[in-house]
Amino acid sequence: MPSFLSGRTVMVTGATTGIGYETARLLAESGATVLLHGRTPQEARAAVARLIATADVDAELLRPCAADFAHLDEVERLANRVVAGHPHLDVLVNNAAVAAPEHRTVTHDGNELSFQVNFLAHYLLTNLLEPVLTTDPGGRVVNVSSSMHRSASISWNDPNRTRRYSRLAAYAQSQLALTVFAADPRVSAVSVDPGVCETALRPLYGHEGATPAEGAAHVARLCDPALEIVNGAYYDRSTRRDSARGATEERTIKRLNKLAELLVGHSA
């Protein structure tokens, strides 16, 4: 890939494995300074070391950072460190995700695990990083979503699924929320389904997938400042398509913001 991202700074969450790791590699190879997020400092540093050893990247462009998204206080500390150390962030790739467990699991913060890790943590992180997210042309947020958002509904009165839990419904709800969040007018953002890939999430889809590198190419493409985006646009790999019905409606966006603010204890 050409060095079209030279001089730009990009943060990728969930960048130690799978699509996130390959996205970080592609962006660094394209000249970007990459803030490579992992669940722990050890995992982030190991991913950086692996990239330096195996990819054509400049070690100076890789910056490990860490936060366990199952703990919102760690997300807040991560955001504070990024704001302090990087006053200009061109792109934020919200990629970190977990499969909803077979049995309902609640975080320390009281939220269903996949809803918090896949959506609420990214909601909080994005809002806290807003002061440094550039408003220059080409600046954007890229939410890595899934086609499963189309089969989802947000349980507005019971988002943590206390009364009726299904791992597929919980996971799909988190992906719908992330897709709706991309249409928030406060930042320029898009969402993308990179396709089913051979990652830890693949068993949810029930069939074989592409390589993580193939999926990452669709994510990295959306980080190119030369690619003009429309806020809230949804991409199925490299093709722009309509998202789920109602996902870009102002009423739904406002309702999701209100719910998220309540659950993360942060007023945007």
Results as ranks from 00 to 15, higher is better:
195 G>W: 10
169 A>S: 09
241 R>N: 02
181 F>D: 08
235 Y>P: 10
142 V>D: 07
191 S>V: 04
202 R>K: 15
146 S>I: 04
156 W>S: 01
192 V>H: 11
216 A>Y: 06
247 A>W: 10
157 N>P: 03
252 T>C: 07
231 N>C: 14
138 G>W: 10
180 V>D: 02
151 S>Q: 13
191 S>E: 12
229 I>M: 08
229 I>W: 01
170 A>R: 03
191 S>A: 15
204 L>Q: 11
194 P>D: 13
243 S>P: 13
245 R>T: 15
253 I>P: 00
201 L>V: 14
238 S>E: 11
235 Y>C: 06
178 L>F: 06
219 V>W: 06
191 S>R: 04
249 E>T: 14
157 N>F: 03
203 P>Q: 12
188 S>E: 15
172 A>C: 01
173 Q>S: 03
244 A>D: 12
195 G>N: 11
240 R>K: 08
231 N>M: 06
158 D>S: 07
188 S>N: 15
249 E>H: 13
253 I>K: 00
193 D>P: 01
177 A>M: 08
198 E>S: 13
248 T>A: 10
139 G>R: 04
193 D>R: 01
235 Y>M: 05
193 D>K: 01
188 S>L: 15
153 S>E: 12
168 L>N: 04
165 Y>F: 09
139 G>D: 09
164 R>M: 11
142 V>R: 03
187 V>E: 09
233 A>C: 06
212 P>T: 05
222 L>S: 08
198 E>A: 13
